[in-house]
């Protein structure tokens, strides 16, 4: 389990009817457009993570005046990477959706719950996930993941 530091994170919510243009402008600025619902995309410079109804989290500096509402959320999210052989079993104890590789593939992302917290979960590798939660929940997030991991280990 390691912390993922997102230096700059903004929430992009395109104005009604502007999503196409916002996506094009984004593509010009960071090389990535807006991803489809439930998908996260990245390149060397930036990341675009679908974050819900008409909203995306973008890890980059962007300018979208007139196209989208852009809110700085750099300090609002705590993000951590969890990886290892039993990672799906650990998350299965806390998350109500099916995160197995057969349904939740690389680049898939979901807004869902972990224990009772609202989180964004993205698969970043065959045995690796990134979990984002509100920063005030960071301690609880780590605690719950550690407790679940201990239980999975105890079962052997």
């Amino acid at each position: 389990m390691t912390e993922v530091v997102l230096e700059r994170l903004v929430l992009v919510s395109p104005y009604i009817g502007q999503a196409k243009w916002a996506s094009a402008a984004l593509k010009e600025q960071i090389g990535l457009g807006l991803s489809a619902p439930g998908r996260a995309i990245s390149n060397r410079r930036a990341r675009v993570i679908w974050a819900g109804q008409r909203s995306w989290l973008v890890a980059a500096e962007v300018k979208l005046e007139g196209l989208a509402a852009v809110t700085d959320q750099s300090d609002a999210w705590a993000s951590l990477r969890i990886e290892g052989a039993g990672v799906e079993d650990v998350l299965a104890r806390l998350v109500p959706i099916d995160l197995r590789a057969s349904t939740f593939k690389g680049g898939h992302t979901a807004r869902t719950m972990l224990a009772h917290m609202n989180v964004a979960i993205t698969r970043v590798g065959a045995q690796a996930f990134e979990v984002m939660a509100m920063r005030s929940m960071a301690g609880t997030l780590v605690h719950d993941l550690q407790a679940a991991a201990a239980q999975v280990t105890a079962r052997g």
């Binding site: 619902p37 439930g38 819900g52 109804q53 109500p96 959706i97 979901a110 869902t112 719950m113």
Partner: peptide, 10 residues
């Protein structure tokens, strides 16, 4: 419509 089938608690 965005996320697929989800539990009622969400």
């Amino acid at each position: 419509p965005n996320c697929g089938e989800r539990d009622r608690r969400e």
